[in-house]
Amino acid sequence: MPDPDPPTLHATAVAVDGRGLLIRGASGSGKSGLALEMMARGAQLVSDDRVILRAAGDALWLTAPKPLRGMIEARGIGLLGADCTDRARLCAVLDLDREEEARLPQRREIMLQGHRIPLLHKSAHPYFAASLVQYLKGGRRE
């Protein structure tokens, strides 16, 4: 049964083929900018700035609050219209407030509403956005 009062998070979410990434971080950490980079590489916007996290069955789902649907902020330009998806199944959380130091990091998880979700940290590499798109497409291998 769907959650009647799902939480709204200060975050941005994108998806590839229905597989969603929740991008969290402090204000100004680059959530929208990273989402724009991922969208340029084939990801779809779910929501920018605020994301509704809804539990349904054995999954968590990402959706946009209606007033924000189809919009993303581009610093120095303004609010942009964007093709978006109605919802995406949460497959990973990215924490932009933590820097990844390992070349091949161990798997991490975070608990959200009773679900274990893979947790990623940011990377300063120029191909990070492309790597995240591929992560959503193909998952991580050992």
Rank of each mutant, 00 (worst) to 15 (best):
M1N: 13
M1R: 06
P2W: 08
D3M: 01
D3K: 03
P4H: 10
D5S: 10
T8V: 15
T8Q: 11
T8W: 03
H10L: 09
T12N: 07
A13S: 09
A13H: 01
A13K: 01
A13N: 07
V14T: 06
A15D: 12
A15F: 02
A15T: 08
V16D: 11
V16I: 13
G18M: 00
G18F: 03
R19H: 10
R19A: 15
G20F: 05
G20S: 04
G20W: 02
L21F: 01
L22K: 01
L22V: 11
R24S: 12
R24G: 12
R24K: 07
A26C: 03
S27H: 04
S27I: 07
G28W: 04
G28F: 05
S29C: 11
K31G: 03
G33I: 03
G33H: 08
L34H: 06
L34E: 06
A35N: 04
L36S: 07
E37R: 06
A40K: 10
A40Y: 06
A40Q: 12
R41K: 14
R41H: 08
R41T: 08
A43L: 06
Q44Y: 09
S47V: 07
S47K: 03
D48T: 04
D49R: 02
V51F: 12
I52G: 08
I52Y: 01
L53K: 09
L53V: 07
A55G: 13
A55H: 12
A56H: 11
G57E: 15
G57Q: 10
A64C: 14
A64F: 00
P65W: 02
K66T: 10
L68Q: 09
M71C: 09
E73N: 04
A74S: 08
R75S: 12
R75T: 10
G76T: 14
G76I: 07
G76D: 12
G78K: 00
L80M: 12
G81Q: 11
G81E: 15
A82C: 03
A82F: 00
A82W: 04
A82Q: 09
D83R: 04
D83C: 07
C84R: 07
C84F: 04
D86I: 03
R87M: 04
A88L: 11
C91M: 14
A92C: 11
A92P: 08
A92G: 13
V93P: 14
V93N: 05
V93A: 02
V93G: 10
D95C: 11
L96C: 05
L96E: 00
D97K: 01
D97S: 03
D97C: 14
R98F: 05
E101L: 05
A102L: 12
L104D: 12
L104C: 07
P105V: 04
Q106R: 03
R108K: 06
R108A: 07
E109V: 09
I110G: 04
I110T: 14
M111N: 13
M111Q: 14
Q113A: 13
Q113Y: 02
G114Q: 04
G114N: 09
G114F: 02
I117F: 05
I117A: 00
H121M: 13
K122Y: 05
S123H: 11
H125R: 15
P126G: 03
F128D: 15
F128Y: 15
A130H: 07
A130C: 00
A130W: 03
S131K: 13
L132V: 10
V133N: 10
Y135K: 04
L136T: 05
G138H: 13
G138M: 13
G139I: 01
R140W: 11
R140S: 15
R140P: 13
R140H: 10
E142H: 13
